[in-house]
């Protein structure tokens, strides 16, 4: 059997080719994507479209509800609006008439009266302390009796 000598040069070349073969598909996949043809648009009836557009423009309600779409989208996304609602702007009006935020900071206590304040903190741990104290005494007594029996 004939032996082929392996040189450093051939080994380095083989490694470079192997690395290129491994990495090339990844690089190529990032560069080429499948082409998807857009669906064909249906034939537009120009007469009907014109009538619909004219009707939409004449419809003040529809027109007003489409004003300031950014504010509407922000409100839907929960972003607080900064603009003041105007009388004619129904989209902004819907933002302004939203239910007022009644969330209260956790752990807040009421010490003085204010409109919308939570009730004063009347929770007390004293009954729980009393029960825990009595329970500790009883358990301690049981332990002493157990010790006396063992003795």
């Amino acid at each position: 059997m004939r032996r082929t000598p392996v040189t450093l040069r051939s080994a380095t070349t083989a490694m470079i080719f192997s690395a290129a073969a491994l990495l090339t598909p990844a690089v190529l996949s990032a560069q080429f994507t499948t082409f998807v043809a857009p669906p064909r648009q249906a034939a537009v009836d120009s007469a009907k479209t014109t009538v619909a557009v004219t009707k939409a423009r004449a419809d003040s309600v529809a027109r007003m509800s489409l004003t300031d779409m950014k504010a509407w989208v922000d409100s839907a996304a929960g972003v607080p609006g900064t603009k003041v609602a105007t009388a004619n702007d129904t989209a902004m009006a819907s933002v302004a008439t939203a239910v007022p935020d009644q969330r209260v900071e956790p752990g807040r206590t009421t010490t003085t009266f204010s409109n919308g304040a939570i009730a004063p903190n009347t929770a007390t741990p004293l009954p729980a302390y009393l029960v825990a104290g009595l329970a500790s005494l009883i358990v301690g007594m049981l332990l002493l009796r157990l010790r006396a029996r063992r003795a």
Binding site: G133, L137, I138
Partner: peptide, 22 residues
């Protein structure tokens, strides 16, 4: 025996403290 005595004494002290506090 020592553990029992220690536990009983601790519980007694704890219980008495809580009751006196309340």
């Amino acid at each position: 025996d020592v553990a029992l005595r220690f536990g009983a004494a601790s519980l007694f002290i704890l219980g008495a403290t809580l009751i006196v506090f309340v």
